[in-house]
Amino acid sequence: MNALIATDLDRTMIYSESALAAPPGPDSVCVEIYRDAPLSFMTQSGVDALTALAARTPVVPVTTRTRAQFERIMLPGRPFRFAVVSNGGRILCDGEDDVGWRAALQARVRDRSVPLADLHADLLTRIDESWVRATRVADDLFAYLVVDTERQPADFLASWNEWCVPRGWTVSQQGRKIYAMPVGVTKSAAIAEVRRRLVDDGALSADAPVLAAGDGRLDADMLESADHAIRPRHGELHDSGWTIPGLAVTRRAGIAAGEEILAWFAAHTPDSPTPDHTALDIPVPDPAFAEK
């Protein structure tokens, strides 16, 4: 029996300089360059751990980033057979877009949510340049804002959520970004499809567990649907006190949490070698961790 590992990227596996919780040190490895400048980092220990993990068990990167944004990342362990981008809006198989998945998803979205154009038109009536730095439509699928949190009206999120929910949209704020996502677009649905395919072609045993990690509200459904889940001691879920039965939480925050998550994955992957916890300076995970 092996396992399927599904991991969020930003602020879970990779970290911008502002999310590191410490200045980049000699152990920091740049894994993304944007506009000729380093943008995202892992530690060398994290790079080594993810490379080793991906060599022996299926690892699926899962992100709200679009395909183009995801492909900027030089993620250790690549190439990955499957990746999930646009919050589950697209599945990449051997680097190519799965058009069948996208077509089926768009049909579900049409059935359950008002059109993106309607949502965007309403959004523009609620915002102004005094607190919104950018408005984006991503992958012709969802919308998000980049905001000045100190100037953001206190009632904006609740007010817009009241409009969105009955129209088949969900609203989530992750730091400076506020997302509006169709209810049919989820990371958990895409991971379930990837797992089905891996089982069907014999790459994954039918009883293989799904292990998942993430830090934000848009990761919550993936963590809930996994057999075992972990989140870092930072981010939207941590700040709200979010938990589920059996959930593991890292001891540390920032980039060090990424190392801890990888050690947890390794320790809870059936038939895997024992990880070097001493090198990572984290507690040895309890092998009898709670079942969900």
Rank of each mutant, 00 (worst) to 15 (best):
R252F: 07
M74R: 05
N87P: 02
D139P: 10
G216Y: 11
K177H: 02
Q106S: 05
A3V: 06
A192L: 01
I255D: 05
R196C: 00
M181D: 15
A19G: 02
I255N: 02
E291C: 14
D36W: 12
I191H: 10
D201W: 06
P153V: 10
A21I: 02
V99R: 07
S272Y: 10
R133L: 15
H120C: 07
W101S: 02
I91H: 13
E150S: 14
C93Q: 13
Y34A: 09
D118M: 05
Q173M: 00
A22H: 04
C164P: 15
L50R: 00
R78I: 01
P58R: 06
A212N: 12
L247K: 14
A117T: 13
R110I: 12
C93G: 02
D98H: 03
R112V: 01
T243A: 12
T274Y: 00
I255E: 05
E71V: 03
G77P: 03
M74S: 10
S45R: 01
G77I: 03
R67I: 06
P166F: 13
A288S: 15
R72I: 03
S205P: 04
G25N: 15
E96K: 13
A288P: 14
R112A: 14
D148A: 07
R102L: 08
F80W: 03
A121Q: 13
A138P: 09
G235T: 10
R251H: 14
G202F: 11
Y179R: 08
W131M: 10
K187C: 09
E150I: 04
D215E: 11
H228I: 05
G235D: 04
S18M: 04
T51D: 06
L123D: 05
I14Y: 00
E96N: 09
A263H: 00
R176A: 09
M42F: 09
A189N: 10
A212T: 06
G100H: 06
T135V: 15
A49Q: 00
D48K: 02
F41E: 07
Y179N: 09
F80Y: 14
I261V: 11
E259M: 01
H234T: 03
A267L: 04
A208C: 09
E291V: 13
R110D: 13
T66C: 11
A154D: 10
A138T: 11
C30F: 09
T43R: 00
I282H: 05
S40V: 05
L123W: 11
D207Q: 12
R65A: 05
V47T: 13
W160V: 10
L145F: 12
A226K: 05
Y15G: 00
L39E: 15
L39N: 09
D271I: 01
E259F: 00
I230L: 02
A189F: 08
R136W: 04
S205I: 02
R151D: 15
M42V: 12
V171D: 02
R167H: 12
D221N: 08
